[in-house]
Design a protein around this nucleic acid. Structure first.
Lengths: 222, 222
DNA sequence: GGCATTATCCATCGCGTGTTGGATAAATTC
DNA sequence: GAATTTATCCAACACGCGATGGATAATGCC
Protein backbone atom coordinates (compact mmCIF):
# COMPACT_ATOMS: atom_id res chain seq x y z
CA UNK A 1 0.00 0.00 0.00
CA UNK A 2 2.56 2.57 1.17
CA UNK A 3 5.27 3.96 -1.00
CA UNK A 4 7.17 0.70 -0.89
CA UNK A 5 9.20 0.18 -4.04
CA UNK A 6 8.04 -3.15 -5.38
CA UNK A 7 9.10 -3.64 -8.99
CA UNK A 8 6.99 -6.18 -10.88
CA UNK A 9 9.85 -7.19 -13.14
CA UNK A 10 13.20 -7.12 -11.55
CA UNK A 11 15.26 -4.12 -12.51
CA UNK A 12 18.99 -3.96 -12.26
CA UNK A 13 21.73 -5.32 -14.40
CA UNK A 14 21.12 -8.90 -15.40
CA UNK A 15 23.58 -11.10 -17.23
CA UNK A 16 24.43 -10.08 -20.73
CA UNK A 17 22.43 -12.94 -22.25
CA UNK A 18 19.35 -11.74 -20.46
CA UNK A 19 19.70 -8.27 -21.90
CA UNK A 20 19.49 -9.76 -25.31
CA UNK A 21 16.38 -11.57 -24.28
CA UNK A 22 14.65 -8.34 -23.34
CA UNK A 23 15.82 -6.57 -26.45
CA UNK A 24 14.71 -9.51 -28.51
CA UNK A 25 11.30 -9.50 -26.87
CA UNK A 26 10.91 -5.81 -27.64
CA UNK A 27 11.98 -6.31 -31.23
CA UNK A 28 9.62 -9.21 -31.73
CA UNK A 29 6.67 -7.30 -30.33
CA UNK A 30 7.51 -4.20 -32.32
CA UNK A 31 7.97 -6.19 -35.50
CA UNK A 32 4.56 -7.78 -35.17
CA UNK A 33 2.90 -4.44 -34.50
CA UNK A 34 4.71 -2.54 -37.22
CA UNK A 35 3.94 -5.28 -39.72
CA UNK A 36 0.28 -5.30 -38.81
CA UNK A 37 -0.39 -1.58 -38.62
CA UNK A 38 2.55 0.38 -39.97
CA UNK A 39 5.05 2.78 -38.48
CA UNK A 40 2.82 5.70 -37.62
CA UNK A 41 -0.13 3.73 -36.32
CA UNK A 42 1.92 2.01 -33.62
CA UNK A 43 2.73 3.77 -30.36
CA UNK A 44 5.83 3.11 -28.33
CA UNK A 45 3.73 2.53 -25.22
CA UNK A 46 1.88 -0.11 -27.16
CA UNK A 47 5.12 -1.81 -28.10
CA UNK A 48 6.29 -1.60 -24.52
CA UNK A 49 3.06 -3.14 -23.24
CA UNK A 50 3.25 -5.97 -25.74
CA UNK A 51 6.81 -6.66 -24.65
CA UNK A 52 5.90 -6.41 -20.96
CA UNK A 53 8.18 -3.48 -20.20
CA UNK A 54 7.99 0.25 -19.78
CA UNK A 55 8.26 2.69 -22.64
CA UNK A 56 11.52 4.06 -21.28
CA UNK A 57 13.01 0.59 -21.40
CA UNK A 58 12.22 0.39 -25.08
CA UNK A 59 14.00 3.67 -25.61
CA UNK A 60 16.91 2.47 -23.52
CA UNK A 61 17.39 -0.60 -25.70
CA UNK A 62 16.56 0.63 -29.15
CA UNK A 63 16.86 4.40 -29.03
CA UNK A 64 14.44 6.47 -31.03
CA UNK A 65 11.36 5.14 -32.73
CA UNK A 66 12.91 5.29 -36.18
CA UNK A 67 15.88 3.30 -34.88
CA UNK A 68 13.53 0.74 -33.41
CA UNK A 69 11.80 0.38 -36.76
CA UNK A 70 15.12 0.04 -38.46
CA UNK A 71 16.21 -2.62 -35.98
CA UNK A 72 13.02 -4.58 -36.59
CA UNK A 73 13.60 -4.49 -40.29
CA UNK A 74 17.23 -5.45 -40.01
CA UNK A 75 16.30 -8.42 -37.85
CA UNK A 76 13.64 -9.65 -40.27
CA UNK A 77 15.86 -9.02 -43.24
CA UNK A 78 18.74 -10.96 -41.71
CA UNK A 79 16.59 -14.05 -41.33
CA UNK A 80 15.38 -13.75 -44.89
CA UNK A 81 18.88 -13.28 -46.18
CA UNK A 82 20.17 -16.40 -44.43
CA UNK A 83 17.44 -18.58 -45.86
CA UNK A 84 17.69 -17.23 -49.37
CA UNK A 85 21.46 -17.32 -49.56
CA UNK A 86 21.56 -20.87 -48.30
CA UNK A 87 18.99 -21.96 -50.87
CA UNK A 88 20.81 -20.09 -53.61
CA UNK A 89 24.07 -21.79 -52.70
CA UNK A 90 22.42 -25.17 -52.95
CA UNK A 91 20.80 -24.36 -56.27
CA UNK A 92 24.06 -23.04 -57.66
CA UNK A 93 25.91 -26.16 -56.63
CA UNK A 94 23.26 -28.36 -58.21
CA UNK A 95 23.37 -26.30 -61.37
CA UNK A 96 27.14 -26.70 -61.53
CA UNK A 97 26.85 -30.42 -60.98
CA UNK A 98 24.35 -30.99 -63.75
CA UNK A 99 23.71 -28.05 -66.04
CA UNK A 100 20.61 -27.73 -68.14
CA UNK A 101 18.56 -28.40 -65.02
CA UNK A 102 18.15 -24.79 -64.05
CA UNK A 103 14.39 -25.02 -64.08
CA UNK A 104 14.34 -27.47 -61.20
CA UNK A 105 16.66 -25.15 -59.31
CA UNK A 106 14.33 -22.23 -59.84
CA UNK A 107 11.44 -24.31 -58.59
CA UNK A 108 13.32 -25.10 -55.43
CA UNK A 109 14.45 -21.55 -54.85
CA UNK A 110 10.95 -20.19 -55.29
CA UNK A 111 9.51 -22.84 -53.02
CA UNK A 112 11.95 -21.96 -50.29
CA UNK A 113 11.09 -18.30 -50.70
CA UNK A 114 7.36 -18.91 -50.57
CA UNK A 115 7.68 -21.22 -47.59
CA UNK A 116 9.68 -18.66 -45.69
CA UNK A 117 7.25 -15.82 -46.34
CA UNK A 118 4.22 -17.96 -45.56
CA UNK A 119 5.70 -18.88 -42.22
CA UNK A 120 6.73 -15.29 -41.44
CA UNK A 121 4.11 -13.05 -43.01
CA UNK A 122 5.45 -10.05 -41.13
CA UNK A 123 8.41 -10.16 -43.50
CA UNK A 124 6.12 -9.49 -46.42
CA UNK A 125 4.25 -6.78 -44.56
CA UNK A 126 7.42 -4.94 -43.57
CA UNK A 127 8.88 -5.15 -47.05
CA UNK A 128 5.73 -3.85 -48.67
CA UNK A 129 5.41 -1.02 -46.20
CA UNK A 130 8.98 -0.02 -46.86
CA UNK A 131 8.47 -0.21 -50.58
CA UNK A 132 5.58 2.20 -50.24
CA UNK A 133 7.68 4.78 -48.48
CA UNK A 134 10.65 5.46 -50.69
CA UNK A 135 11.19 8.84 -49.14
CA UNK A 136 11.61 7.73 -45.57
CA UNK A 137 14.49 5.28 -45.75
CA UNK A 138 15.44 5.49 -49.37
CA UNK A 139 19.04 4.51 -48.81
CA UNK A 140 18.08 1.41 -46.88
CA UNK A 141 16.04 0.03 -49.72
CA UNK A 142 19.14 -0.23 -51.82
CA UNK A 143 21.15 -1.59 -48.93
CA UNK A 144 18.61 -4.30 -48.19
CA UNK A 145 16.58 -5.05 -51.28
CA UNK A 146 19.31 -4.97 -53.86
CA UNK A 147 21.33 -7.96 -52.58
CA UNK A 148 18.37 -10.30 -52.47
CA UNK A 149 17.06 -9.22 -55.82
CA UNK A 150 20.46 -9.59 -57.42
CA UNK A 151 20.81 -13.00 -55.90
CA UNK A 152 17.78 -14.37 -57.70
CA UNK A 153 18.46 -12.35 -60.77
CA UNK A 154 21.98 -13.72 -60.97
CA UNK A 155 20.59 -17.22 -61.20
CA UNK A 156 18.56 -16.29 -64.24
CA UNK A 157 21.55 -14.63 -65.83
CA UNK A 158 23.83 -17.58 -65.13
CA UNK A 159 21.25 -19.95 -66.51
CA UNK A 160 21.01 -17.84 -69.61
CA UNK A 161 24.77 -17.92 -69.98
CA UNK A 162 24.71 -21.69 -69.58
CA UNK A 163 22.15 -21.84 -72.34
CA UNK A 164 19.48 -23.61 -70.35
CA UNK A 165 16.95 -20.77 -70.47
CA UNK A 166 16.49 -17.28 -71.83
CA UNK A 167 15.13 -14.24 -69.99
CA UNK A 168 15.66 -10.92 -71.76
CA UNK A 169 14.72 -8.86 -68.72
CA UNK A 170 15.63 -10.87 -65.63
CA UNK A 171 15.18 -7.85 -63.39
CA UNK A 172 11.59 -7.45 -64.42
CA UNK A 173 10.94 -11.15 -64.18
CA UNK A 174 12.31 -11.39 -60.66
CA UNK A 175 10.41 -8.35 -59.49
CA UNK A 176 7.15 -9.67 -60.87
CA UNK A 177 7.74 -13.00 -59.25
CA UNK A 178 8.57 -11.45 -55.90
CA UNK A 179 5.49 -9.25 -55.95
CA UNK A 180 3.28 -12.14 -56.92
CA UNK A 181 4.55 -14.02 -53.89
CA UNK A 182 3.96 -11.05 -51.64
CA UNK A 183 0.44 -10.72 -52.97
CA UNK A 184 -0.15 -14.36 -52.21
CA UNK A 185 1.04 -13.94 -48.64
CA UNK A 186 -1.08 -10.85 -48.10
CA UNK A 187 -4.13 -12.62 -49.45
CA UNK A 188 -3.43 -15.56 -47.16
CA UNK A 189 -3.19 -13.27 -44.17
CA UNK A 190 -6.40 -11.48 -45.13
CA UNK A 191 -8.77 -14.39 -45.60
CA UNK A 192 -7.48 -17.19 -43.46
CA UNK A 193 -9.84 -19.74 -44.96
CA UNK A 194 -8.22 -21.27 -47.94
CA UNK A 195 -5.11 -22.06 -46.01
CA UNK A 196 -3.33 -25.15 -47.20
CA UNK A 197 -5.38 -25.47 -50.36
CA UNK A 198 -4.62 -21.92 -51.40
CA UNK A 199 -0.95 -22.46 -50.69
CA UNK A 200 -0.89 -25.52 -52.89
CA UNK A 201 -2.73 -23.70 -55.65
CA UNK A 202 -0.23 -20.88 -55.62
CA UNK A 203 2.75 -23.20 -55.74
CA UNK A 204 1.26 -25.02 -58.69
CA UNK A 205 0.60 -21.75 -60.45
CA UNK A 206 4.13 -20.46 -60.00
CA UNK A 207 5.61 -23.72 -61.21
CA UNK A 208 3.35 -23.63 -64.23
CA UNK A 209 4.42 -20.06 -64.80
CA UNK A 210 8.15 -20.86 -64.66
CA UNK A 211 7.70 -23.95 -66.79
CA UNK A 212 5.79 -22.06 -69.42
CA UNK A 213 8.35 -19.29 -69.56
CA UNK A 214 11.53 -21.28 -69.30
CA UNK A 215 10.96 -24.90 -70.17
CA UNK A 216 13.10 -25.86 -73.12
CA UNK A 217 11.06 -26.43 -76.27
CA UNK A 218 9.59 -29.88 -76.06
CA UNK A 219 10.79 -32.45 -78.51
CA UNK A 220 14.34 -33.41 -79.37
CA UNK A 221 16.66 -31.15 -77.44
CA UNK A 222 19.28 -33.23 -75.70
CA UNK B 1 -3.84 44.78 -38.31
CA UNK B 2 -7.14 45.66 -36.65
CA UNK B 3 -9.90 43.17 -36.12
CA UNK B 4 -11.15 43.67 -39.64
CA UNK B 5 -12.51 40.46 -41.08
CA UNK B 6 -10.68 40.03 -44.35
CA UNK B 7 -10.97 36.47 -45.64
CA UNK B 8 -8.26 35.51 -48.12
CA UNK B 9 -10.52 33.13 -49.95
CA UNK B 10 -14.05 34.29 -50.15
CA UNK B 11 -16.35 32.53 -47.69
CA UNK B 12 -20.05 32.26 -48.16
CA UNK B 13 -22.19 30.04 -50.24
CA UNK B 14 -20.92 29.80 -53.79
CA UNK B 15 -22.72 28.11 -56.60
CA UNK B 16 -23.18 24.40 -56.30
CA UNK B 17 -20.60 23.70 -58.98
CA UNK B 18 -18.05 25.61 -57.01
CA UNK B 19 -18.69 23.52 -53.93
CA UNK B 20 -17.74 20.51 -55.91
CA UNK B 21 -14.61 22.27 -57.01
CA UNK B 22 -13.50 22.85 -53.45
CA UNK B 23 -14.41 19.36 -52.38
CA UNK B 24 -12.64 18.01 -55.40
CA UNK B 25 -9.54 20.04 -54.60
CA UNK B 26 -9.54 18.68 -51.06
CA UNK B 27 -9.99 15.13 -52.27
CA UNK B 28 -7.20 15.44 -54.82
CA UNK B 29 -4.78 16.85 -52.27
CA UNK B 30 -5.74 14.25 -49.68
CA UNK B 31 -5.43 11.44 -52.20
CA UNK B 32 -1.93 12.48 -53.16
CA UNK B 33 -0.85 12.76 -49.54
CA UNK B 34 -2.47 9.52 -48.40
CA UNK B 35 -0.98 7.68 -51.34
CA UNK B 36 2.47 9.03 -50.65
CA UNK B 37 2.61 8.63 -46.88
CA UNK B 38 -0.32 6.62 -45.63
CA UNK B 39 -3.30 7.33 -43.46
CA UNK B 40 -1.64 7.94 -40.13
CA UNK B 41 1.32 9.92 -41.41
CA UNK B 42 -0.89 12.60 -42.95
CA UNK B 43 -2.43 15.34 -40.84
CA UNK B 44 -5.66 17.08 -41.64
CA UNK B 45 -3.97 20.47 -41.41
CA UNK B 46 -1.53 19.26 -44.02
CA UNK B 47 -4.34 18.25 -46.31
CA UNK B 48 -6.04 21.57 -45.74
CA UNK B 49 -2.85 23.49 -46.53
CA UNK B 50 -2.30 21.51 -49.72
CA UNK B 51 -5.84 22.26 -50.77
CA UNK B 52 -5.55 25.93 -49.81
CA UNK B 53 -8.29 25.88 -47.19
CA UNK B 54 -8.67 25.67 -43.46
CA UNK B 55 -8.84 22.41 -41.57
CA UNK B 56 -12.42 23.11 -40.54
CA UNK B 57 -13.39 23.38 -44.19
CA UNK B 58 -12.03 19.93 -44.81
CA UNK B 59 -14.12 18.63 -41.97
CA UNK B 60 -17.14 20.49 -43.27
CA UNK B 61 -16.86 18.85 -46.68
CA UNK B 62 -15.70 15.34 -45.89
CA UNK B 63 -16.52 14.78 -42.25
CA UNK B 64 -14.13 12.78 -40.15
CA UNK B 65 -10.66 11.76 -41.23
CA UNK B 66 -11.69 8.17 -41.85
CA UNK B 67 -14.53 9.39 -44.05
CA UNK B 68 -12.10 11.57 -45.96
CA UNK B 69 -9.85 8.58 -46.56
CA UNK B 70 -12.82 6.57 -47.68
CA UNK B 71 -13.92 9.31 -50.05
CA UNK B 72 -10.44 9.46 -51.56
CA UNK B 73 -10.45 5.74 -52.14
CA UNK B 74 -13.94 5.73 -53.59
CA UNK B 75 -12.97 8.48 -56.00
CA UNK B 76 -9.84 6.67 -57.17
CA UNK B 77 -11.66 3.39 -57.36
CA UNK B 78 -14.46 4.85 -59.45
CA UNK B 79 -12.00 6.01 -62.09
CA UNK B 80 -10.32 2.64 -62.15
CA UNK B 81 -13.62 0.86 -62.42
CA UNK B 82 -14.75 2.92 -65.39
CA UNK B 83 -11.58 2.25 -67.32
CA UNK B 84 -11.47 -1.44 -66.57
CA UNK B 85 -15.12 -2.10 -67.26
CA UNK B 86 -14.94 -0.27 -70.55
CA UNK B 87 -11.91 -2.26 -71.64
CA UNK B 88 -13.53 -5.48 -70.49
CA UNK B 89 -16.63 -4.71 -72.52
CA UNK B 90 -14.53 -4.17 -75.61
CA UNK B 91 -12.58 -7.36 -75.07
CA UNK B 92 -15.73 -9.35 -74.49
CA UNK B 93 -17.29 -8.04 -77.66
CA UNK B 94 -14.18 -8.87 -79.64
CA UNK B 95 -14.09 -12.34 -78.14
CA UNK B 96 -17.70 -12.92 -79.12
CA UNK B 97 -17.01 -11.69 -82.64
CA UNK B 98 -14.09 -13.97 -83.23
CA UNK B 99 -13.50 -16.62 -80.59
CA UNK B 100 -10.18 -18.35 -80.12
CA UNK B 101 -8.57 -14.94 -79.98
CA UNK B 102 -8.77 -14.57 -76.24
CA UNK B 103 -5.04 -14.08 -75.88
CA UNK B 104 -5.11 -10.83 -77.84
CA UNK B 105 -7.96 -9.69 -75.65
CA UNK B 106 -5.97 -10.42 -72.53
CA UNK B 107 -3.06 -8.47 -73.92
CA UNK B 108 -5.27 -5.48 -74.51
CA UNK B 109 -6.92 -5.66 -71.13
CA UNK B 110 -3.60 -5.88 -69.33
CA UNK B 111 -2.18 -3.03 -71.37
CA UNK B 112 -5.09 -0.82 -70.45
CA UNK B 113 -4.67 -1.74 -66.82
CA UNK B 114 -0.95 -1.04 -66.83
CA UNK B 115 -1.42 2.22 -68.69
CA UNK B 116 -3.98 3.39 -66.20
CA UNK B 117 -1.88 2.59 -63.16
CA UNK B 118 1.25 4.09 -64.67
CA UNK B 119 -0.58 7.33 -65.28
CA UNK B 120 -2.15 7.35 -61.82
CA UNK B 121 0.35 5.75 -59.46
CA UNK B 122 -1.63 6.92 -56.45
CA UNK B 123 -4.16 4.25 -57.35
CA UNK B 124 -1.57 1.57 -56.80
CA UNK B 125 -0.37 3.16 -53.59
CA UNK B 126 -3.86 3.42 -52.12
CA UNK B 127 -4.75 -0.15 -53.08
CA UNK B 128 -1.58 -1.53 -51.58
CA UNK B 129 -2.00 0.42 -48.39
CA UNK B 130 -5.54 -0.83 -48.06
CA UNK B 131 -4.45 -4.38 -48.72
CA UNK B 132 -1.98 -4.09 -45.90
CA UNK B 133 -4.63 -3.10 -43.40
CA UNK B 134 -7.30 -5.76 -43.57
CA UNK B 135 -8.53 -4.93 -40.11
CA UNK B 136 -9.33 -1.28 -40.68
CA UNK B 137 -11.76 -1.38 -43.57
CA UNK B 138 -12.20 -5.08 -44.05
CA UNK B 139 -15.70 -4.82 -45.46
CA UNK B 140 -14.66 -2.29 -48.05
CA UNK B 141 -12.04 -4.57 -49.51
CA UNK B 142 -14.72 -6.96 -50.55
CA UNK B 143 -16.96 -4.18 -51.75
CA UNK B 144 -14.25 -2.65 -53.92
CA UNK B 145 -11.67 -5.28 -54.81
CA UNK B 146 -13.99 -8.17 -55.54
CA UNK B 147 -15.77 -6.65 -58.58
CA UNK B 148 -12.56 -5.76 -60.37
CA UNK B 149 -10.94 -9.07 -59.63
CA UNK B 150 -13.97 -11.00 -60.76
CA UNK B 151 -14.09 -8.95 -63.93
CA UNK B 152 -10.67 -10.10 -65.08
CA UNK B 153 -11.15 -13.55 -63.65
CA UNK B 154 -14.39 -13.94 -65.58
CA UNK B 155 -12.53 -13.39 -68.80
CA UNK B 156 -10.21 -16.27 -68.04
CA UNK B 157 -13.13 -18.49 -67.12
CA UNK B 158 -15.09 -17.59 -70.23
CA UNK B 159 -12.05 -18.20 -72.38
CA UNK B 160 -11.63 -21.56 -70.73
CA UNK B 161 -15.25 -22.38 -71.44
CA UNK B 162 -14.76 -21.33 -75.05
CA UNK B 163 -11.82 -23.69 -75.23
CA UNK B 164 -9.26 -21.11 -76.21
CA UNK B 165 -7.15 -21.39 -73.06
CA UNK B 166 -6.96 -23.25 -69.78
CA UNK B 167 -6.29 -21.80 -66.35
CA UNK B 168 -6.95 -24.16 -63.45
CA UNK B 169 -6.76 -21.41 -60.84
CA UNK B 170 -7.85 -18.16 -62.46
CA UNK B 171 -8.12 -16.43 -59.13
CA UNK B 172 -4.49 -17.07 -58.35
CA UNK B 173 -3.42 -16.10 -61.84
CA UNK B 174 -5.26 -12.80 -61.74
CA UNK B 175 -3.96 -11.95 -58.31
CA UNK B 176 -0.39 -12.66 -59.32
CA UNK B 177 -0.79 -10.57 -62.43
CA UNK B 178 -2.29 -7.67 -60.53
CA UNK B 179 0.45 -7.70 -57.94
CA UNK B 180 3.14 -7.88 -60.58
CA UNK B 181 1.68 -4.75 -62.13
CA UNK B 182 1.54 -2.99 -58.80
CA UNK B 183 5.16 -3.91 -58.17
CA UNK B 184 6.06 -2.47 -61.51
CA UNK B 185 4.33 0.81 -60.74
CA UNK B 186 5.92 1.07 -57.31
CA UNK B 187 9.35 0.45 -58.80
CA UNK B 188 8.68 3.08 -61.43
CA UNK B 189 7.71 5.59 -58.76
CA UNK B 190 10.76 4.75 -56.68
CA UNK B 191 13.50 5.09 -59.24
CA UNK B 192 12.29 7.50 -61.84
CA UNK B 193 15.14 6.79 -64.21
CA UNK B 194 14.23 3.95 -66.40
CA UNK B 195 10.98 5.55 -67.35
CA UNK B 196 9.80 4.69 -70.81
CA UNK B 197 12.31 1.90 -71.30
CA UNK B 198 11.28 0.18 -68.10
CA UNK B 199 7.65 0.50 -69.05
CA UNK B 200 8.30 -1.14 -72.39
CA UNK B 201 10.28 -3.92 -70.77
CA UNK B 202 7.47 -4.68 -68.37
CA UNK B 203 4.86 -4.77 -71.11
CA UNK B 204 7.00 -7.15 -73.12
CA UNK B 205 7.50 -9.36 -70.08
CA UNK B 206 3.81 -9.57 -69.28
CA UNK B 207 2.97 -10.38 -72.86
CA UNK B 208 5.61 -13.08 -72.91
CA UNK B 209 4.20 -14.37 -69.67
CA UNK B 210 0.64 -14.55 -70.97
CA UNK B 211 1.77 -16.05 -74.26
CA UNK B 212 3.81 -18.70 -72.52
CA UNK B 213 0.97 -19.63 -70.22
CA UNK B 214 -1.95 -19.47 -72.59
CA UNK B 215 -0.79 -19.63 -76.17
CA UNK B 216 -2.37 -22.62 -77.85
CA UNK B 217 0.16 -25.37 -78.56
CA UNK B 218 1.95 -24.44 -81.73
CA UNK B 219 1.36 -26.60 -84.75
CA UNK B 220 -1.89 -27.87 -86.21
CA UNK B 221 -4.71 -26.69 -83.97
CA UNK B 222 -7.38 -25.02 -86.06
C1' DG C 1 -34.74 43.80 -49.31
C1' DG C 2 -35.26 40.25 -45.69
C1' DC C 3 -34.38 35.49 -44.36
C1' DA C 4 -32.57 31.20 -44.24
C1' DT C 5 -28.72 28.51 -45.77
C1' DT C 6 -24.19 27.48 -46.62
C1' DA C 7 -19.10 27.89 -46.88
C1' DT C 8 -15.33 29.45 -44.75
C1' DC C 9 -12.10 30.66 -41.09
C1' DC C 10 -10.39 31.29 -36.19
C1' DA C 11 -9.68 29.66 -31.68
C1' DT C 12 -9.68 26.13 -28.70
C1' DC C 13 -10.23 21.67 -26.24
C1' DG C 14 -8.84 17.13 -24.84
C1' DC C 15 -5.90 13.61 -25.84
C1' DG C 16 -2.09 10.84 -27.17
C1' DT C 17 2.40 11.07 -28.91
C1' DG C 18 7.75 10.53 -28.72
C1' DT C 19 11.15 11.75 -25.79
C1' DT C 20 13.80 12.85 -21.45
C1' DG C 21 15.44 13.34 -16.50
C1' DG C 22 15.78 11.27 -12.40
C1' DA C 23 15.25 7.67 -8.88
C1' DT C 24 15.93 2.79 -7.69
C1' DA C 25 17.81 -1.65 -7.56
C1' DA C 26 20.36 -5.43 -9.27
C1' DA C 27 24.77 -7.07 -11.06
C1' DT C 28 29.64 -6.54 -11.92
C1' DT C 29 34.26 -4.96 -10.60
C1' DC C 30 37.76 -3.82 -7.64
C1' DG D 1 32.14 -4.41 1.11
C1' DA D 2 32.43 -0.10 -1.68
C1' DA D 3 32.09 1.85 -6.20
C1' DT D 4 30.56 1.68 -10.70
C1' DT D 5 27.73 0.32 -14.23
C1' DT D 6 23.49 -1.10 -16.10
C1' DA D 7 18.46 -2.08 -16.53
C1' DT D 8 14.23 -0.75 -15.28
C1' DC D 9 10.33 2.16 -14.07
C1' DC D 10 7.84 6.60 -12.93
C1' DA D 11 6.61 11.12 -14.01
C1' DA D 12 6.49 14.80 -16.77
C1' DC D 13 7.20 17.86 -20.75
C1' DA D 14 6.33 19.94 -25.16
C1' DC D 15 3.99 19.15 -29.21
C1' DG D 16 0.83 17.84 -32.72
C1' DC D 17 -3.27 15.57 -33.53
C1' DG D 18 -8.46 15.22 -34.74
C1' DA D 19 -12.49 17.37 -33.66
C1' DT D 20 -15.77 21.21 -32.44
C1' DG D 21 -18.27 25.72 -31.43
C1' DG D 22 -18.98 30.02 -32.89
C1' DA D 23 -18.49 34.18 -35.73
C1' DT D 24 -18.70 36.05 -40.42
C1' DA D 25 -19.85 36.73 -45.03
C1' DA D 26 -21.61 35.42 -49.37
C1' DT D 27 -25.32 33.18 -51.78
C1' DG D 28 -30.15 31.57 -53.07
C1' DC D 29 -35.03 32.04 -52.23
C1' DC D 30 -39.19 34.67 -51.51
Amino acid sequence: MGGMTMPRRRPGRPRRDENLQTRERVLAAATALFAARGFDAVGLREVAAAAGVDVATVAHHTGTKAQLYEACFARVFAAEKVVLEQAARRVRAAARARPRQTLAGLHELVDVFVDFLEQRPETTALWLRRWLEPHRHADLDQRYAAPLYELVEALLVEAAAAGSLVEPTPHVAVRSLVWAVHGHVVALAADDPGGAAERQRFRAFVHRWLDALYAPPTGGES
